Amino acid sequence: MQLPETGSHTPGTVRPGGRTARTRAAVRDAVLTGLAEHGYPGLTVEYVAELSGVHKTTVYRRWGSVEGLVADALQLAGEDSWTPPDTGSLDGDLRALAREVTETFGDAPTAAAPTAFVAAAFQSRRAAEALHDFYAERFARCESVVTRAVERGEAPLGTDAGAVVRAVSAPLFFRVLITREPIGTPLADQSAAAVAAAVRAGAYLPAG
């Protein structure tokens, strides 16, 4: 459920075999590194071209601007094969989801690029739309966690799966991005346990 991290991919590994795919992956990796090192305001097309080894003219022709580069990096991240955890229980699945957030955002070096994506969304409409689409798709994948819980009898029929998976990460994102407080495994487990208890109590059933 996390955003892409610097060093988390090797150029060309997302769609192997094609020159275009390798170019796109190399540019994506350069964007991630640039966001981590300089943030969105310091990211330039020239920097991405030099680091990726892709000619600046090609970068401009294909991506147009820094906004285009950031949006495509997020789109490429959303094309991966990530699947939500399947531990065999609602509690275990929610805990695993929450821990993934802390693994990404709880360590400063690892969190640098993902946090920069969020910051970019406040400065660029195109980046904001790409970030929205990334998380909408990510959360949609995670809804299977709740679907399985309903099938096992761990959650009431009609439980709002989208609300549940968002609620697990919400307090973690609040601390990282708003109050700038540290997060870790204990907080992840606490958030997961609270949401699981609320699910069982019917808190995520439709009102009325």
Rank of each mutant, 00 (worst) to 15 (best):
R125E: 14
P84D: 00
Y60A: 01
A128H: 15
G78P: 12
S65I: 03
V48H: 08
L94V: 01
A108V: 14
G88C: 03
D91S: 07
R62E: 14
A71T: 14
V45F: 05
T115H: 09
S65H: 04
R125A: 14
S124C: 11
D133T: 13
F117T: 09
S89M: 03
G64W: 06
A116E: 08
W82N: 02
V45S: 06
T57G: 14
A71Q: 14
L51Y: 05
S124R: 11
W82A: 04
T115E: 13
G106S: 04
T57Y: 12
A111F: 08
P84I: 00
F122I: 00
E100G: 11
A130K: 08
E79W: 00
L97Q: 11
G68D: 12
E100F: 00
S65P: 02
R95C: 03
F122P: 00
R62I: 06
Q75F: 10
H55T: 04
H55K: 12
A121R: 06
A98F: 01
F122S: 10
R126N: 10
T104M: 07
V59C: 08
G88S: 06
Y60W: 04
A113R: 13
T87P: 01
K56I: 15
A108Y: 06
D91M: 03
G53F: 08
D133G: 13
T44R: 10
L131F: 15
T57Q: 12
S124E: 12
L51R: 15
L69I: 06
D93N: 03
R62G: 00
Q123S: 14
D80P: 08
G106I: 02
A120V: 08
F117M: 09
R126P: 11
S89A: 10
L90S: 01
V59K: 10
P84R: 00
P85R: 03
G92I: 01
E50R: 13
T104V: 15
L90A: 03
Y47W: 10
L90C: 04
R126K: 14
Q123N: 06
A130C: 09
G68N: 09
G64C: 09
S124K: 08
F122Y: 10
Q75K: 12
A119Q: 15
K56F: 05
A49C: 08
R99C: 07
T44Q: 09
L43D: 07
A119F: 03
L43N: 06
V101F: 14
A108W: 09
H55C: 01
